[in-house]
């Protein structure tokens, strides 16, 4: 009996000690992790827009958070976006029904910067709407340069060959693909892991929606000329204007060349990008119409 008590006390003390250590480390690292992640995402976004070192001061990222709102048996979409208020900025939630009409408009009491934090955002939302079930869906970013839209940055994930692949495609204001970044993946190094290579990602550049819809993956190897063009950091410095135009014309309609030994990963990325971009364009058109029809003072 005495031994059991001894054992229990021993184990309890060690567990308590472990708990204290872990809790302390978590408190210290959680903040740093959030901050580093924020910086990382910010850097990826500016890089995708083509700003390597110098970032123009009037570049601004407007985050639009999409929610699915269920109220009884009717389902609506909620878009939380930054809006202008007198001398200040706040957030608004636009509820749009499935037919694309504005069904409600709420003022959310939160700063756009603070709304980046999922927990804070959720709290503010719950305060504004009561009783409705709100599920977070995704976040898209509209980049503006001095008030004019320059690009859309989307985020999404889809299953690859081994695990989920997280990507961030960028579209320009005319919905052409501006660039693609692979944020996270667990494909095999040397095979599927090559989706990180510049020459693969750049194959998506310049495609628009009509073209993207029917984009296929083919197993032919990349021609040398095309690969050099794709890998060039600044193609306009290597090629003369005429050459550049010729190459772009030659390859603008080509399909995506699969990576050697990683056809499944290549297909997964192509299909995933296709889906993300297609859905985003569909939604942003509705949202834009609603914003202009109802004269909502959005910041973008």
């Amino acid at each position: 009996m005495k031994e059991i008590v001894k054992i229990i006390i021993g184990l309890t003390i060690s567990c308590l000690f472990a708990g204290v250590v872990l809790g302390g480390v978590y408190v210290i690292t959680a903040k740093a992790k959030k901050h580093n992640q924020y910086l990382d995402v910010q850097q990826t976004m500016t890089k995708l827009l083509g700003y390597d070192k110098v970032v123009p001061p009037d570049l601004r990222f407007n985050h639009i958070h999409r929610y699915i709102i269920e109220n009884g048996d009717c389902t609506c979409l909620g878009y939380m976006l930054p809006v202008k208020r007198e001398g200040d900025e706040g957030c608004a939630l636009l509820v749009i029904d499935l037919q694309g009409r504005l069904a409600g408009r709420y003022k959310i009491d939160i700063q756009p910067e603070k709304a980046l934090n999922e927990q804070d955002r959720k709290q503010a939302l719950e305060k504004a709407l009561d009783g409705e079930i709100v599920t977070y869906a995704d976040t898209a970013v509209i980049a503006t340069l001095g008030g004019r839209r320059t690009a859309y940055l989307l985020a999404g994930k889809f299953p690859g060959f081994k695990g989920f692949i997280h990507v961030m495609p960028a579209l320009d204001s005319g919905f052409r693909i501006l660039g693609l970044e692979i944020l996270e993946h667990s494909e095999d190094p040397g095979l599927g892991g090559e989706i990180e290579q510049v020459y693969f990602k750049n194959q998506f550049k310049g495609r628009d929606l009509d073209h993207l819809k029917y984009l296929k993956v083919i197993k032919q190897p990349l021609s040398k000329e095309y690969k050099i063009y794709l890998e060039a950091k600044k193609p306009e410095e290597i090629y003369s204007n005429a050459d550049l135009a010729e190459i772009e014309k030659k390859y603008q309609n080509s399909d995506i060349h699969a990576l050697t030994g990683a056809t499944i990963s290549s297909r997964a990325v192509t299909r995933g990008i296709k889906n993300i971009v297609k859905k985003f364009i569909y939604r942003i058109r509705i949202l834009d119409r609603v914003i202009s029809e109802n004269k909502i003072p959005a910041t973008f």
């Binding site: 060690s14 480390v25 992790k33």
Partner: peptide
């Protein structure tokens, strides 16, 4: 003991060396 230290390393790596 090992699990505690592994979690510590895990958290630190995730925070500072993503």
């Amino acid at each position: 003991t090992i699990a505690t230290w592994v979690t510590v390393i895990d958290l630190v790596l995730a925070a500072f060396f993503p």
